[in-house]
Design a binder for these strands. Structure first.
Lengths: 179, 179
DNA sequence: GCTCCCATGTAATCTGTTACATGATTCC
DNA sequence: GGAATCATGTAACAGATTACATGGGAGC
């Protein structure tokens, strides 16, 4: 069984939804998976090409009035099986986030206190904005036109994002207090 | 002002401590920064080479009885300034963690429930082990031979790791309950 | 005419991992 | 003799970003 990278499996998974073009895949990831995944067009289009070459999906160009043509991809049974095999496979290791803010704080001794405080405040604000965006995604998923079966799992992942982000916000507050 | 990548700045920062060789840098990162940073020798040695070429540090080979020689690096004033400039610079964006477990869970509809549960249990276990390792790091920092000034900031970053990991563990528990 | 959104794609570059190569010393 | 730890380094590869190129349609 040939191996693909995670982003390719992400694309394979998204092709089970109604997002069928490269552009739509990018949008879905940016909008609904952005709390644990991101991707660029430089990955999407070559991956879609490979997916078709390997017989995991077929392409069809569809025209829509008043919009550019788009290439729509449909999983083949081989594609569905490849996805299922990956989903059933155990997870090797949990991710190590590379966090620039923490890296700088680690060397905080060589920073001015003013900078440390500004960076913490800034981080807190960005986390709060992120939290707010999760609430928006939550609303979109709950009221969206996706299947309830999908929504259930999507909300699980979102709950993760909310909890972890909230913990980080609380850490910012607690750390700021110590200055 | 020439720009370096984050891992190079991390190395520059570590050279302010008593870790002065490639090997020692790797150890410190694996032991004390592993909750928000990781690095491989394939990055460290070329980066050290560049750091010297650019005059940010000097090398000196030191011999220790009953141990192989090691190359010890010392920041120059230019190196210290480069580090300070980076530390003072604002943070562009907060990181997006790529999380394979969440990616699979997002497509949980196409997984057997058994697999979903196993993966969640497994993730929870790994997080608990990670939390425990943070407690060990905490102890090492608190009782270590590093300056108290450093220890203060190191414990801040560790607190982040603990809070976020605990939030993730709680999420695992809450999610498992829903099956 | 201009800007924004839709849409696809490639090439260069950067960042990071893995595998490999080498060799000293210590402890069993 | 063998395993573990200390120590340095490179080459091949994988993964991902960025910049660039192209072009249609909608609305102002």
């Amino acid at each position: 069984m040939k191996k693909y990278n995670h982003s390719t499996y992400a694309i394979l998974g998204i092709l089970t939804t109604n997002c069928r073009s490269g552009y739509a895949i990018k949008q879905l990831i940016d909008q609904s998976l952005n709390h644990f995944w991101k991707i660029s067009y430089g990955q999407i289009y070559p991956a879609l090409k490979l997916i078709v070459e390997d017989g995991l999906a077929t392409v069809r160009t569809s025209s829509h009035e008043s919009k550019p043509d788009r290439n729509e991809y449909f999983l083949t049974s081989k594609g569905k099986e490849t996805l299922r095999n990956w989903l059933e496979a155990p997870i090797e290791q949990i991710p190590v986030e590379r966090n620039e803010i923490l890296l700088k704080l680690f060397f905080g001794r060589y920073q001015t206190q003013e900078t440390t405080l500004l960076q913490l405040e800034d981080y807190k604000q960005k986390l709060e904005a992120r939290y707010q965006s999760y609430l928006n995604i939550e609303h979109a998923i709950s009221t969206g036109k996706n299947s309830e079966e999908d929504a259930r799992y999507w909300l699980f992942t979102l709950d993760y994002g909310k909890r972890v982000t909230m913990a980080a916000i609380e850490w910012c507050q607690a750390t700021l207090k110590q200055f």
